[in-house]
Write a protein that binds this DNA or RNA. Structure first.
Lengths: 211, 211
DNA sequence: ACCTGAACACCGTTCAAGT
DNA sequence: ACCTGAACACCGTTCAAGT
């Protein structure tokens, strides 16, 4: 049983299986992955160059799922939609996030997102340097929020000063995800309001789309 | 040469040596660490329960260095100082941050910070639920910014649309750190302005210190 | 109490060998 | 072209043994 007539493996299939393991256990191992795919560990290396390579493919898969807004609406609204889509796709695989906080990489999907953000800020009247800073701020906030959602830095559960309603919500298990999302939206609106203010004060010429 | 008259190791010394390795290489290994300390790998386990334990101690050491503001000033200014101190202590060991994005832990130092933040928001007129959200937002932003500073998600270096001055700054190597810090301050001010607005609208009773 | 050396189960990766 | 099994260098951790 050496070479099957049709390949048992492929790069995307490997990434999928790895993503599945990470969603379940928060990490993955080459032997684990091979076992899950019914294959020997060394076989994987016919389709993939290294474990890091697999992590990168998972990032690409996650980022590729982002729902991006149609261009042409209000620029602040565009920012809001991108940020939410970004966050949502992170939220689908929370365990994955810590895995790629180490590398600096940008795959095609990530580039697409940055490009749309840059366009939106340009439409809002931001100069190059300003929109660079603004994009970084937005990106940092989304990433930080996603990490917090994955592994909340606090156990608020037992806080006695909380309102009864909140404590009730906290004790229901599902609240964790919801609360993270609500908090994310709250912070996002703070940032967007700031961007709005700054944009409006500079935005005289250039009515709508700037490529 | 079995037991020396005075111990060659101690928990804090191990954490320090590990922190030094991480600052240099971005990771550390038990054999590496043992070698750096002139000791056999198994010796470490007389002072430390696991590798994760060492990571936790490093977190504590990093958080312990935070310079916290005197209580009593303007609450927004207090928030600003805490956030900056927080960020500054992260910035001292950028390679360390990815290491503890996996665990959820809170050591004494982290608790101290949260407590001060809670007091500041209370002084600003925030209710319990609101300040919970606000603290999370601030925390997420600082963490995301620190991660971005450690491993910028973009290589802006070659952007032709940048101003000449910016590109010049970028090409000088030191700019990376400075730019990350400037961007952090920019985003922080956006958030603080939002908090300020929200706080002022609710802050009638309760003149100064609460708790 | 504290360090050593040998040992264990595991990991990521390579490579000759098979078809 | 694609899978296997054996092999390599490494890892984190345990534990009996020494003093």
């Amino acid at each position: 049983m050496a070479r099957p007539r049709s390949p048992k493996l492929s790069a995307p299939a490997i990434a999928d299986a790895a993503l599945c393991l990470v969603d379940k256990h928060g990490e993955f191992t080459i032997p684990q992955l091979a076992k899950a795919m019914g294959v020997s560990p060394s076989s994987l290396y016919n389709h993939v160059v290294s474990k890091d390579d697999i992590v990168e493919m998972m990032r690409g898969a996650a980022m590729g799922e982002i729902e991006l807004p149609e261009p042409g609406g209000d620029w602040v609204d565009t920012l809001r939609q991108i940020a939410k889509g970004y966050m949502r796709s992170y939220a689908k695989h929370p365990k994955l996030i810590p895995l790629f906080t180490a590398h600096t990489v940008r795959d095609e999907g990530t580039l697409r997102v940055y490009d749309l953000l840059a366009r939106a800020f340009a439409a809002g009247g931001f100069g190059a340097a300003d929109s660079l800073a603004a994009i970084t701020v937005l990106d940092s906030f989304v990433l930080g929020s996603a990490l917090d959602a994955a592994a909340p830095s606090q156990v608020w559960e037992s806080a006695e000063e909380n309102s009864a309603a909140l404590n009730a919500a906290l004790e229901a298990g599902l609240a964790v995800q919801d609360r993270a999302w609500t908090t994310f939206e709250y912070g996002l609106e703070l940032l967007l309001a700031g961007f709005q203010l700054q944009g409006n004060s500079t935005q005289q010429e250039e009515p709508s789309r700037t490529a």
